[in-house]
């Protein structure tokens, strides 16, 4: 029998530390598979954020740089500018990218930095125990909005793809979800397209992945993915928001 599915060489043997059912593991695999299938193994550098994915440098089987919280896209700018022949990806969570790192991501996009940002939006701060994130939904509970996010007190979720799509620097921006097998397959296509746009030097590319956080959402893993599909996708519609020729 032929192998239909096998773990990619672009992931190390280190087991993921992520919680059971956490979609970070899926996101990591998609990025690693894309790198392998597109032949970037020998010229790829990844930037790990601060957040649940802070240990990503143990998982991606390539040169990795650990960035300060929020600064991954600035670090990516620095390493890509001096090494343009390398494929550079920054892997960031919603707190990392859309809160403390908002200035960095907006300006990296506006400058059209030829990097690929993998943006994991699970609407919560996971590593630190479930605080509200910039993408926490209205009414969604967190340890810092225990009665549910109230826009009058805590503001409204930030739609990063729509926001960055208003800029001229980005070449490709898509929002996908990791909520079921077909969505995950679509997500992988988006990652490969973003990497292809980077390879062609077309500009800044970003794939936002709607993800789950079973532990801090206090849901079972499959219920959490239903929440992604039924609740998150209402506020964060899937689709391509920027695609230059």
């Amino acid at each position: 029998m032929a192998t239909v599915f096998k773990k990619t060489q672009m992931l190390t043997d280190t087991p993921f530390h992520y919680c059971p059912g956490c979609t970070h593991g899926i996101a990591h695999r998609l990025v690693a598979e894309a790198i392998e299938e597109m032949g970037f193994q020998n010229n790829v550098i990844g930037i790990a954020p601060v957040g649940c994915a802070v240990f990503a440098y143990n998982y991606f089987n390539c040169d990795m740089i650990e960035a300060a919280h929020g600064r991954a896209s600035a670090v990516a700018t620095g390493v890509k500018r001096v090494n343009p022949q390398n494929i550079v990806f920054a892997y960031q969570g919603d707190g990392d990218l859309a809160s403390i790192g908002m200035a960095e991501i907006v300006h990296a996009a506006a400058r059209g930095e030829k990097i690929t940002v993998i943006f994991i939006n699970n609407a919560i701060y996971g590593m630190t125990g479930g605080q509200m994130a910039p993408t926490t939904l209205e009414g969604q509970k967190s340890t810092t909005c225990v009665y549910g996010r109230d826009s009058l007190l805590n503001g409204n979720p930030i739609k990063v793809c729509e926001l960055l799509a208003t800029l001229d620097g980005p070449a490709y921006i898509e929002r996908v979800a990791l909520s079921d097998a077909s969505s995950v397959r679509k997500a992988k296509k988006a990652v490969k397209k973003a990497f292809e746009y980077q390879r062609q030097g077309k500009g800044f590319t970003l794939v936002e992945m709607l993800s789950s956080c079973p532990t801090n959402w206090k849901m079972t893993p499959d219920k959490a993915l239903e929440y992604v599909k039924n609740d998150m996708q209402k506020i964060f519609p899937l689709g391509v928001f920027k695609e230059v020729e």
Partner: peptide, 11 residues
């Protein structure tokens, strides 16, 4: 802040 982190990346 961004500038020093770009230095971090290039270095």
């Amino acid at each position: 802040v961004a500038a020093i982190n770009m230095v971090y990346g290039a270095a």
